[in-house]
């Protein structure tokens, strides 16, 4: 009903040309236009963090960003974290630590954690708690999520990454 705009989204290393209304959120574009449904919507007002994606290295709520604003940026979604069939070390740590139950918030925690660890490879427990305090999980009570992120940081340091 309103004008369409052309935008090229670079998502997980692949460029996608989309025609979108100016008002279409990045989250809706990823889910509806690109079928990348791993990015979940829990509140659509920027509080719950489920829709977090990585935009040029930073954790961004894709419900608060328009698709047309994403022209020229590099976006990583949860679908871009594993290497083929091999889970990333962070995904594996979530699995090993029972850091998910229903899994709905998990993509947002993974993307948030990746951006946190990129910025601060040696976070303290309190720093991890603070860094993920904008993501809501209703199942786990957060404890295993914090453990998984700290485990990953430790493994990466020991692995020389």
């Amino acid at each position: 009903m309103t004008a369409q705009h052309s935008v090229t989204l670079n998502v997980n290393g692949t460029a996608h040309d989309c025609e979108v209304e100016a008002r279409m959120t990045l989250a809706d574009c990823l889910r509806e236009k690109l079928d990348l449904t791993g990015t979940h919507l829990g509140c659509e007002h920027g509080v719950c963090g489920a829709c977090t994606v990585i935009v040029d290295g930073a954790a961004v709520r894709s419900c608060l960003m328009f698709a047309v604003q994403a022209q020229g940026v590099q976006i990583t979604t949860v679908e871009g974290l594993a290497d083929g069939d091999t889970l990333s070390d962070l995904q594996q740590a979530f699995h090993d630590n029972f850091a998910l139950q229903c899994g709905f918030c998990t993509p947002g925690f993974l993307t948030t954690a990746e951006s946190v660890l990129a910025e601060n490879p040696s976070p303290t427990r309190a720093e991890v708690q603070s860094a993920i305090s904008g993501n809501i999980c209703r199942c786990t009570g957060y404890v295993p999520i914090i453990d998984a992120i700290l485990d990953t940081a430790k493994r990466r340091r020991e692995g020389g990454q």
Binding site: G38, T77, V78, Q91, H95, F98, L100, G103
Partner: peptide, 15 residues
């Protein structure tokens, strides 16, 4: 370890 996890961790769950 949970059998459900892989699809949830890779964004391939079907909600």
């Amino acid at each position: 370890k949970r059998l459900e996890d892989r699809r949830f961790l890779t964004g391939t769950g079907r909600y």
